[in-house]
Amino acid sequence: MQLTLPQQLSVKQVCHWMGLPSTAQADPQTLALAEKACEIVLSSAQPRGIYRVGSLQLSPDGELQCENIPLCGTDIARHLQKCDRAVWLAVTIGTQTEMQTRRLGKDMALVCAVDAAAGLLAETLADQLQETIRQELTETSYMTSRYSPGYGDFPIETQREVVRFLDAPRKIGLTVNSGGILIPRKSITAVCGLSDQPVKGHLAGCAHCVLRSKCNYRKEGKYCGDRELAK
């Protein structure tokens, strides 16, 4: 389905994603850079999303799975505790923004700003789709927060199965390349658990995160899954 582009993206947040600590004040030049990046991203993005509900089961050898998608690792199992179904979702901002980024050549400051703004847009779209799903499904069910392959010890390779389950290449033009990377690059796949009883899910902490030794959030005593931080 077509998703709605937000009117604007948070310039402050883009500066932050470019590597400015949340405590630092962005200088006017960097703010202008971020603004330009937001403009490039919002004028080139073609946002699309898709979702589909599946049921959770234990495979014959006791592994949690959902419609043949393996749910490996302890973190995702914990997140989906008490759930009997799950909704898989995917969003993409399309291929055009990447071409606009490549046109910038060696202007790495702007390239990084566009990369940050594009990432922020993908997150914003995932929020939007999640909210649509919540309105659609939570009259009858409770739903956890969103959890993506690659978080904690939930393998990033799972993306391939997710994309297949969602028929994403045909439905929204989202594919996985032979190296397991989503193409278009600024895309997100994720899962939310569904249950008849109240559930919130448990997002992965830093324990299994591959970035834990150098994460800037962590250095500041913060956590990337904190929704407040994203605002």
């Binding site: 030049q29 960097t30 202007d107 400051a109």
Partner: peptide, 14 residues
Amino acid sequence: LFLPQLLQSAGAAQ
């Protein structure tokens, strides 16, 4: 000074 500024300086040097 942070990455955005470092990159802008690099761009100016270019």
